[in-house]
Amino acid sequence: MKYHIAIPLFFLMVQLGWAQQKTIKPDLKKKVETVSSELSTSPTNPMDPVAVNATLVWSKDKTQVAIILKANIADGWHIYAYVPETQPYIASKLELELPIGINTIGEWEKPYSEPYGDDIYVYHDTPIFVQYCSVGNFTKGSEINCGLFYQTCDLRKCFPPQTKSKTLKL
């Protein structure tokens, strides 16, 4: 009889522990809001209308970290959030390489994308993307690689797709 109670109790404990890892700490959320608004990017220019920067933000107890990726898109330009298969444009993709001991909590948080017509959605201005992660045992000095693969266009032209990446040290 003891085993009949112990096994479900074990699975409940595992599930509760898992649920805690998926809950983002309130102090971290607050820090992310502040840091993301203050994060600067390089200036853009007519031949390179998108600039990207990234940073890490830690929870007070260092059990969670947020990766903030911010793009600065020049006036009149956009990148694609969603493109149907019937359209020739290329949707943006977020890239992330994590070291052992760092695990994602859910998916990237993405900003609102604006309808552009023909079921296409775009980002413009300064979209901010956030990925929350749980922190286990990791090697100090290890790196997180993150980036944005995108195609940028204005009303007259599109540039070939490219990736802009950042390496962040833990």
Rank of each mutant, 00 (worst) to 15 (best):
H4Y: 14
I5R: 08
I5L: 15
A6T: 01
P8E: 04
P8H: 01
P8S: 04
L9A: 15
F10N: 12
F10S: 14
F10L: 15
F11M: 13
L12Q: 04
M13Y: 10
M13Q: 09
M13D: 03
V14K: 14
Q15P: 04
W18D: 13
W18A: 12
Q21K: 10
I24E: 01
K25N: 05
K25G: 00
D27G: 11
D27Q: 06
L28H: 00
K29W: 05
V32R: 03
V32D: 02
T34E: 14
V35E: 09
V35N: 07
S37D: 13
L39Q: 06
S40C: 10
T41Y: 03
T44C: 09
N45I: 05
P46R: 03
P49D: 01
P49N: 01
A51W: 00
V52W: 00
K60Q: 10
K62D: 05
T63N: 14
T63K: 14
T63G: 08
Q64V: 05
Q64M: 12
A66N: 07
A66H: 04
I67H: 01
L69Q: 00
A71P: 02
A71I: 06
N72H: 14
N72F: 07
I73Q: 06
A74N: 11
A74W: 06
A74Y: 07
D75A: 09
G76N: 08
I79P: 00
I79G: 01
V83Q: 06
V83E: 05
P84Q: 10
T86R: 15
T86I: 13
T86Q: 15
Q87W: 07
Q87R: 15
Y89R: 12
A91M: 09
A91Y: 07
S92F: 03
L96V: 14
L98S: 01
P99W: 08
P99C: 08
I100N: 11
I102M: 09
T104V: 15
G106R: 12
G106S: 13
E107A: 15
E107D: 15
W108K: 02
P111T: 04
S113T: 07
P115E: 05
Y116D: 11
G117L: 13
G117R: 09
D119C: 04
D119P: 09
D119K: 11
D119G: 09
Y121A: 01
V122P: 00
V122G: 03
D125S: 12
D125R: 14
P127A: 03
P127F: 02
P127Y: 01
F129N: 02
V130S: 01
Q131N: 01
Y132C: 06
Y132F: 13
Y132R: 06
C133M: 07
S134N: 10
G136T: 07
N137C: 10
N137E: 13
S142E: 01
E143T: 09
I144E: 00
N145I: 15
C146Q: 02
C146F: 02
G147R: 14
G147P: 12
L148K: 02
L148F: 04
F149V: 06
Y150V: 11
T152G: 03
T152C: 11
T152A: 13
C153Q: 04
D154P: 01
K157D: 04
F159Y: 04
F159P: 00
P161Q: 11
P161M: 08
Q162V: 12
Q162D: 08
Q162E: 12
T163K: 13
K166Y: 03
K166L: 10
K166P: 02
T167D: 05
T167H: 07
K169W: 05
L170E: 03
